[in-house]
Each structure stands twice: as C-alpha cells, then as structure tokens.
C-alpha cells in the first residue's frame, strides 16, 4: 500500500443516554490507501456505522462525544467548521447507505438530484451538468439513462436506486466512497452487479473505498485489507489473504469457523460462538471478548492492546501464539 489517504487515530464515540454511556466506538485506528478497498466487518452493534458516520460528523454533536483524530488531505476532519465539513462531504468523500430511499429525495426526478450535485460541486452550466448526470447514470449501469433521467426514485427497484445513489456520490468525483452495507437489502444477483460496479469504478477512476458489511463472502471477493470489529474495537486488521488463511484473533477465527460453506458440505455441526457480545453501557474492564473466548486466561482480565504480529497484520489479543 502506498501513502495513506485517510488516517483514523484512536477514534472514540460515546453516547450519553439516560441509562448510561453507550461506548459504541472505543479507540479504533486505521489508514486507507489510495485506490484501496478496505472492508470493515463485524456483527450488528459492533460500531461499524457509528465509526464511519462520525468521520463525516454525520451524528449530531449533541448526541455523542467524539475523540481522536481523522486526517484527510492534511486536515483533521474532527476540527473542521460545519461549512467546511459540508463542502468536503459529498465532494471529496461520498457515502452510500443500506437504504437509498433515506438519502434520495422522493419528490425530485433523479436526474435533477444528480445534476444539482454536479452543479453545486463543479460550478458548471446546467446543460453540461445534465449531460454529465446522464453520463454518470450510464456509468453505473442505468439502462436508457437519457429517458430514465426524468423518473422519480419510487419508479426504480432497490438495486437501481442503489446505483443512482452511487451515481449521485460520484457526481463530484470523490476520492473516497464510504459504503455502509449497500447491498444488504438486495438480492445476491443484484448484489453481484453492484460489487462489480464498485470494482470497476476503483479501477477506472481510482477511487478508494471503505465498505462496511457483515458478510465475509463479500469481504473475500472485494477487499484489499480488512478490519474486524467487535464491541467498538478493531480486534484484527490484516490483508484479506492473511485474515482468511491465518486469522489470529479468537473472534475472527470463530466467525470464519461458524460459517456454513457453499463450496464444501460438512456433516459436522458448525462451530458456533456461544454467548452474546457485551453490553456497551456496562463495558467490560477486561478483554471485551473474554466471556465468549475459549483461549482466555487470567491475563485477559486486562484489556489487550493492538499489536503487530507481522508488518501488515495487527491483532488485539494476549494469546495469539495459541492459535
């Protein structure tokens, strides 16, 4: 990996609530290289969404307490003013969500929505913007883009809406696309089309991607590097081949073993990880995985630090040597 485009350092996001403080993200650090696809994988509630939403300050400041730093093009995003942040969002960094209807305006023709963001970010004439918008719709594979340009969001299927969202995100030629479970609500054949599209965009326009998912199959086929999250921490960070071949954290290993495989039938029961993730309000003082871990010892009462086991592979566990 070349030089880092984005560097997240020791990010914490806590939500004070009447029941106590929800420790959603607890000191995550990672970097994203140019043209790199980074996958963030973890179960629901592990802090994947909060972790990226807070990078773009998309969580209202009154709801949460954010600490750490996010370096992008020489600036700390957490220190930008609101207008500066708005300028950057959707301009240098675009985001796509699981449900595209939440970010498309239902009463505006989709062409106008894309055209608007082209004009806003590139300051070009309406006529050029229109042909640019049609180009973008073609790029993301909307058939008959010239005609469909005039349609409203509800006239498209879920997969098509997700393509439109990506087109809108690309309008400003961002250097990073953040995609939060963009295919979770889609069928597999449509999911395959969207993944193929994102790979093509990375190849052709050289954008970097942070792709959030809970599906290890998608990770295997798409990512260059992978961060595995558990209870608001990155517990393992590795290039994709290393993670799948030699997972070092008991949780990553457990996840991989618990998956039924399409390509190999086994009569053996799946190796389930028993128990549940910890309560984020009463965050454990020990290793957060301790309760479910079969490798635990006395030492695990002290939370482990992230440490490098090779130049590219980091793990947050006291007992990697046992695996």
């Amino acid at each position: 990996m070349g030089e880092a485009l984005l560097e997240v350092e020791n990010l914490h996001v806590h939500f004070p609530t009447p029941d106590g403080v929800v420790q959603a993200v607890n000191g995550i650090s990672y970097s994203l290289g140019k043209k790199e696809i980074l996958a963030i994988v973890g179960e629901s509630g592990s802090g994947k969404s909060v972790g990226v939403l807070s990078l773009l300050r998309l969580i209202p400041a009154r709801d949460c307490k954010v600490q750490g730093s996010v370096n992008f093009e020489g600036q700390n995003l957490l220190k930008l003013s609101d207008p500066e942040m708005r300028e950057l969002r959707g301009n240098r960094i675009a985001m796509v969500f699981q449900d595209p209807m939440t970010s498309l305006n239902p009463v505006l023709r989709i062409g106008d929505q894309i055209q608007e963001s082209v004009i806003e970010h590139q300051g070009i004439s309406e006529k050029i913007a229109k042909s640019r918008a049609i180009e973008l719709l073609e790029l993301v594979g909307i058939p008959e883009a010239g005609k469909r340009y005039r349609h409203y969001p509800h006239q498209f299927s879920g997969g098509m809406r997700q393509r439109i969202m990506i087109a809108a995100g690309l309008a400003c030629e961002p250097s990073i696309l953040i995609a939060d479970e963009p295919t979770t609500a889609l069928d597999v054949t449509i999911q395959a089309q969207i993944i193929d599209l994102v790979k093509k965009l990375r190849r052709e326009i050289g954008m970097s991607v942070i792709w959030i998912t809970h599906d290890l199959g998608i990770v295997a086929g798409l990512a260059d590097r992978v961060a595995v999250m558990y209870a608001g921490k990155i517990v393992e960070f590795a290039p994709v081949d290393q993670l799948f071949k030699t997972p070092q954290h008991p949780y990553s290993r457990g996840l991989l073993n618990s998956l039924p495989r399409l390509d190999a039938r086994s009569e053996k029961p799946l190796e389930a990880i028993e128990g549940l993730p910890p309560n984020l309000i009463n965050y454990p003082a020990s290793c957060p995985f301790l309760e479910r871990c079969s490798y635990q010892t006395e030492q695990c009462q002290i939370p482990p630090e992230m440490r490098s086991i090779t130049t590219t592979h980091e793990v947050c566990c006291h007992h990697t040597e046992k695996l």
Partner: peptide, 14 residues
C-alpha cells in the same frame, strides 16, 4: 447464475 453470484469466504477462490 445464482451460485456464481454468491460470494464464497475464501479470497483465493473468489
């Protein structure tokens, strides 16, 4: 086609 579209959790195979 359906089988081909399903990602398999193995980067080499993918």
């Amino acid at each position: 086609s359906l089988l081909a579209a399903i990602p398999i959790p193995d980067p080499e195979k993918e």
